[in-house]
């Protein structure tokens, strides 16, 4: 049995179908990139994985558990924006990742001291130790996303969902974030789903690349049919040629 199991998902808003007949099996530790045109339902699919929405039909199970009805600790998430708490310092944001499931959302006494120490360790690992006491608004976009990913990971989710996490970053920062994410992934072997607009990014980071599109198209009523997974690429190194070109024959180096 696969780790993440998506069975025959349909999702419609009112009478308008967004997704239809989506089936997917994902092994533990896989990095899944999800790409597709705007409005193809890839963000809807991520919200379903997150359990922020419940599908009209079908089920999503993680590790065989019952389908979730609301977001919880099984799923970690990083959005393009608003993924960290602006009223907490960087360190408090990391501590929040561990403490929010507790009764008052806080640590007390010795537990607090240990949590702060663990948070400092995490900050060291994600390279934010020097801004531990700053507020997120004073950080650059890349640092804020690094904080958001770190915060999501200290909560130890079963799967990590990334909704265009690097969409608002400049190209240089984006490359640095790719390295950062790959490094974290190598350490944690986390199962990751990432929605992205950027095909190159999807193939570079992902083990598999899923493409969402409509298989049926009504020229008179474009809203008539929903989208589904139309391609499922194996994007691991040595997979499809496109990936080889990207990884081993960097155009800029050979020029």
């Amino acid at each position: 049995m696969s780790f993440v199991e998506v069975r025959n998902i349909f999702q419609s808003y009112g009478s308008r179908p967004i997704l239809e007949r989506v089936n997917l099996d994902v092994a533990k530790g896989d990095f899944i990139s999800i790409v597709g045109a705007s409005g193809c339902g890839k963000s809807t699919f991520l919200r379903l994985l997150l359990a922020q929405e419940v599908p009209t039909r079908g089920t999503i199970r993680i590790d065989g558990n019952d389908p979730a009805v609301e977001p919880g600790r099984e799923r970690g998430v990083v959005f393009q924006r608003y993924s960290v708490f602006p009223h907490m310092s960087v360190r408090e944001n990391i501590v929040a990742g561990e403490s929010f499931h507790r009764c008052w959302g806080r640590f007390y006494g010795a537990g607090k001291k240990q949590a702060l120490d663990r948070a400092d360790e995490t900050l060291n690992r994600i390279g934010l130790a020097h801004v531990a006491d700053a507020y997120p608004a004073t950080l650059s976009g890349g640092m804020q996303q690094r904080l958001a990913i770190g915060q999501a990971l200290v909560a130890r989710p079963r799967i990590l969902l990334l909704d265009e996490p690097f969409g608002a970053l400049d190209p240089g920062t984006r490359l640095a974030m790719h390295d950062f994410l790959m490094e974290l992934r190598a350490q944690t072997r986390m199962t990751v789903f990432m929605v992205t607009h950027d095909l190159e990014e999807g193939f570079k980071l992902g083990d598999r690349v899923l493409v969402f599109d409509k298989t049926r198209w009504d020229a008179d009523y474009p809203d008539n049919y929903g989208a589904t997974i139309t391609y499922d690429f194996d994007a691991r190194n040595g997979g499809i040629p496109f990936q080889d070109i990207m990884e081993e024959h960097n155009v800029l180096l050979s020029a």
Binding site: S83, A96, H101, W104, G105
Partner: peptide, 18 residues
């Protein structure tokens, strides 16, 4: 307050009260 922020707190396991 952005919905994303509330959802993020939910994924960290926060209850309604927290």
């Amino acid at each position: 307050i952005p919905r994303e922020m509330i959802v993020k707190a939910e994924t960290l396991g926060a209850s309604s009260a927290v």
